[in-house]
């Protein structure tokens, strides 16, 4: 990361956009940020499953893709409720709303920052968890691809929920109630792809569907988030 001094701030649109991204990524990895929290949760929660279902390698191998995906989804979810809340509470969201990017652009920047800072580390560490869960050798590639293609949808859909609950005190539970049903298709396609590879079937179709889900989320996510944020700023 280049440590650009604050005084030479870039005032072009992309400059503002990436300024927000950089700031949020830095915040996520600073003391008490969501980055380390989500990553630790991911590691610990996955290791609970062998204790729950027993250490038989075949059973673990069978459930590995689903477990890794579900826990990644939950890790993403618990990091979401602060996505806009901190900025909303200290008033910086009001300033951001006035920036030439518009709220949609601001939301997009914050979603990108969330994905880079919180979700991407989960993707990077997932092969280690695959080893712990005895994931079949051939499935690692598809697991990584499915996470890379599918997790943006998690950040984008979650952003809509986070924006809707931004002014709600202790909105975390409400957020999960709103967002989890919308995560169902992403989860199904992603695990379908990894399962297909593990069963030596071509995973192209589920991966394509997963990509489509992410693209649709990309189309509506920032826009809906901005609409929801505007409500609370009024």
């Amino acid at each position: 990361m280049t440590m650009a001094p604050q005084s030479t701030q870039d005032t072009s649109l992309s400059g503002i956009f990436f300024g927000i991204v950089k700031r949020d990524v830095r915040l996520a990895w600073s003391q008490g940020g969501t980055g380390t929290m989500a990553l630790s949760f991911f590691l610990i929660a996955v290791t609970l499953f062998p204790f729950g279902v027993g250490p038989e390698p075949q059973i673990l191998a069978r459930i590995a893709p689903g477990v890794i995906w579900v826990v990644a989804l939950l890790a993403c979810l618990i990091s979401l409720d602060r996505l806009y809340q901190a900025d909303f509470e200290d008033g910086s969201l009001d300033d951001l709303a006035l920036s030439p990017l518009g709220l949609t652009g601001v939301a997009a920047a914050k979603i990108l920052a969330h994905w880079v800072s919180t979700v991407l580390p989960l993707v990077v560490i997932s092969p280690v968890l695959g080893m712990l869960m005895n994931l079949p050798d051939g499935a690692y590639g598809t697991l990584l691809i499915s996470l890379l293609v599918g997790t943006p949808a998690l950040s984008l859909i979650g952003s809509m929920g986070a924006a809707l609950t931004v002014s709600v005190r202790r909105g975390g539970v409400l957020l999960s109630l709103l967002v989890l049903p919308l995560y169902v298709p992403t989860l199904i396609f992603a695990v379908g792809a990894v399962d297909a590879t593990a069963g030596l079937v071509d995973p192209t179709q589920p991966l394509a569907l997963l990509g489509a889900a992410s693209l649709l989320a990309l189309v509506i996510g920032p826009f809906v988030s901005a609409q929801a944020l505007r409500l609370s700023l009024e």
Binding site: L164, P181, L182, V184, P185, I188, L216, I220, A228, L231
Partner: peptide, 18 residues
């Protein structure tokens, strides 16, 4: 209302995926 509209977009996708 926003949530309900997002839900409507998602319903066919959920239906299809399931």
């Amino acid at each position: 209302s926003i949530l309900a509209l997002v839900g409507v977009i998602n319903l066919p996708i959920i239906k299809f995926s399931v």
